[in-house]
């Protein structure tokens, strides 16, 4: 028998006038590190790092489920709404959660759309954070698929989404973790993956904001997997090149969900990234 050190709780916050009950998990003590999941998934993507005694010895890792994801319910009245995430709503949510949890200039670590929003926050609200770890993150890529595939009455959006994103998982990933990663997409609520992708594949506002990021004040480290078809190493390099002082690491044997699909393979890259961030 073993009990993992992760503790989960709920925080109630009002974001843009809407009450949200947000689930978050945390483990460790010391420097706060706020972790953002990818589109169509939830905090479980971070569970291996939250259970890593070495990492959490000096870092307080916190991950939360975005509204509509995981154990965070959609807001009241969702049954008549079309879920479409926006850069503005995502930025406001991250800031609100950080404030509600009393986090003092945490490191912000995000993957995929979470990495995209980490770079947006580096450009727009750098004073609220101490540094940024942007994983599988880039300025912008248009969709190479039709996002409407993943929300239709005659097919299971979760199963289709999982089958699609499996294209982004490395063949080096342990089989059990590949399928644990895909399960989150299979469980995603109706239209949620589509709603996440709508902003991720259509909002290119970050491109013009990248040069204003001041890495002397808040370092930016980008990590990308060679097997990522959505955010390729070329996409990540182009993005890093546009941010003066940003650093980049390419993981040759990993894909788009590195902390989840291959925890052991990702760990050294994340530890290296934490080392590049300011101490608490």
């Amino acid at each position: 028998m073993s009990i993992e050190p992760i503790v989960g709780r709920y925080v109630n916050v009002t974001i843009n006038g809407v009450q949200q009950r947000i689930y978050f998990e945390e483990a460790g003590q010391g420097r706060p590190v706020l972790c953002l999941h990818t589109a169509g998934a939830d905090t479980r993507q971070w569970r291996h790092l939250l259970s890593d005694a070495e990492v959490t010895k000096t870092n307080r890792l916190i991950a939360f489920d975005m509204p509509w994801h995981g154990k965070s319910l959609p807001p009241e009245g969702f049954e008549t709404q079309e879920y479409l995430l926006t850069t503005e709503a995502y930025v406001d949510t991250v800031l609100a959660v950080a404030q509600a949890l009393g986090l003092d200039r945490p490191v912000l670590a995000g993957c995929s759309m979470g990495g995209r929003i980490a770079l947006q926050l580096a450009a727009l609200h750098a004073d609220r954070f101490s540094g940024f770890i942007a994983i599988e993150a880039s300025d912008f890529q248009p969709a190479w698929y039709d996002i409407d595939w993943f929300h239709r009455p005659d097919a299971h959006g979760g199963e289709m989404g999982a089958a699609l994103v499996s294209a982004n998982i490395s063949p080096h990933a342990p089989n059990a973790e590949r399928w644990n990663t895909l399960w989150m997409f299979m469980q995603s609520g109706p239209g949620v993956f589509r709603g996440d992708l709508s902003f991720y594949t259509r909002d290119d506002s970050l491109i013009a904001r990248l040069p204003r990021i001041d890495t002397a004040a808040t370092p930016v480290h980008i990590i990308v997997g060679a097997y990522d078809l959505t955010c390729t190493p070329e996409d990540a390099k182009r993005t890093a090149d546009a941010i003066p002082g940003a650093t980049l690491a390419v993981m040759e044997e990993l894909g788009h969900f590195p902390m989840s699909e291959h925890p052991a393979g990702f760990r050294p890259f994340f530890v290296d990234a934490l080392d590049k961030m300011p101490a608490a």
Partner: peptide, 10 residues
């Protein structure tokens, strides 16, 4: 263990 790009039909 296919190389990147050859690991999936997409």
């Amino acid at each position: 263990l296919p190389e990147p790009g050859f690991h999936d039909v997409f």
